[in-house]
C-alpha cells in the first residue's frame, strides 16, 4: 500500500519550486522559445543584442559624438543639421540612430529629453536607459515642472536660461549636446569624451567639469 506523507509532499513541492525561475523569467523564456521556433529571430540575435547593449555600448559613443562636435565645427554643423547622417559617418549604425535629432545647449537654452509615452531612447549612442528615465514620475514631471526635476538632479538653472523639453517618439529620438566646459582648451578627443556624462546628453546634467 502506498503511504502519503503530507510533510514530505510539501517538502518535495517546495524543492521543485525553488528550482523554477520566477514567473516573468518563465514568460520570457516561453516567448523566446516560441518566436525562435517560428524563425522570427535566432537565439544568437538575442544574445548578441544583450551583449552589445547591456555590456559594451554604454554612453561612450554619444560622448564621443559630443566631444567631436566641440573640436570640429564642420562636424558640429552637420550633427545639428542631420544627426543621423553625422552619426552614421562615424560608423555608429544602429536602429535607434535612424531618426535622431541633436539639440545644443547654449548660454540661454537648456534642453531636456523625455519620452512621455513609454521610454524611447537612443540606445545605440547612450546604451541602456537608466531606470529613472523609464519611471512614470520622470515621464510626467519632466514636461510639467522641468526646472524642479532638474533641481532634483542638482542642476540649478539661472533665470536667463530657458528650458526646452523634447518628447521622444518611436520615430524620433534626441541627443542633447552639452556645452564644452571652460578650461579644456588643448584637450584631445579621448580626453574630452571622458568628460561627457550620460545625463548631460539626456539633459539632466548641464555644467560639465574640466579635469582639476
Amino acid at each position: 500500500m502506498t503511504t502519503f506523507d503530507s510533510d514530505e509532499a510539501a517538502h518535495v513541492h517546495r524543492h521543485l519550486h525553488s528550482h523554477l525561475p520566477s514567473d516573468p523569467a518563465l514568460r520570457v523564456r516561453t516567448l523566446e522559445s516560441l518566436v525562435v521556433d517560428k524563425g522570427l529571430v535566432t537565439t544568437q540575435d538575442l544574445d548578441s543584442w544583450i551583449e552589445l547593449y547591456a555590456g559594451q555600448v554604454g554612453p561612450h559613443r554619444g560622448a564621443e559624438v559630443v566631444a567631436r562636435s566641440w573640436l570640429d565645427p564642420e562636424f558640429r554643423a552637420r550633427l545639428l543639421a542631420d544627426a543621423a547622417g553625422a552619426v552614421r559617418d562615424l560608423g555608429y549604425h544602429g536602429h535607434a540612430t535612424g531618426h535622431l535629432k541633436a539639440v545644443e545647449n547654449t548660454d540661454t537654452q537648456h534642453n531636456l529629453v523625455v519620452c512621455t509615452l513609454c521610454s524611447c531612447y537612443p540606445f545605440a549612442l547612450l546604451g541602456m536607459s537608466p531606470a529613472w528615465y523609464k519611471s512614470a514620475a520622470y515621464r510626467a514631471r519632466a514636461v510639467r515642472e522641468p526646472r524642479k526635476v532638474l533641481a532634483e538632479f542638482g542642476v540649478e538653472l539661472p533665470e536667463g536660461v530657458a528650458v526646452r523639453v523634447w518628447d521622444s517618439t518611436a520615430e524620433l529620438r534626441y541627443l542633447v549636446v552639452p556645452q564644452r566646459p571652460a578650461g579644456t582648451e588643448g584637450m584631445d578627443l579621448a580626453g574630452l569624451t571622458a568628460l561627457v556624462t550620460r545625463n548631460s546628453m539626456i539633459g539632466t546634467d548641464r555644467d560639465l567639469k574640466a579635469p582639476a
Partner: peptide, 28 residues
C-alpha cells in the same frame, strides 16, 4: 522620484525581454 542611480536591469529576464522587443522590431 527616485534619483539615486539604479542598475539598468535588476534581473536577466529584463534584458532578455528588451532584446526580444528590439530584435522582433528589427525583424519587422
Amino acid at each position: 522620484m527616485t534619483l539615486p542611480e539604479q542598475p539598468v536591469f535588476d534581473e536577466p529576464w529584463q534584458a532578455q525581454a528588451l532584446a526580444l522587443a528590439e530584435r522582433l522590431k528589427q525583424a519587422g
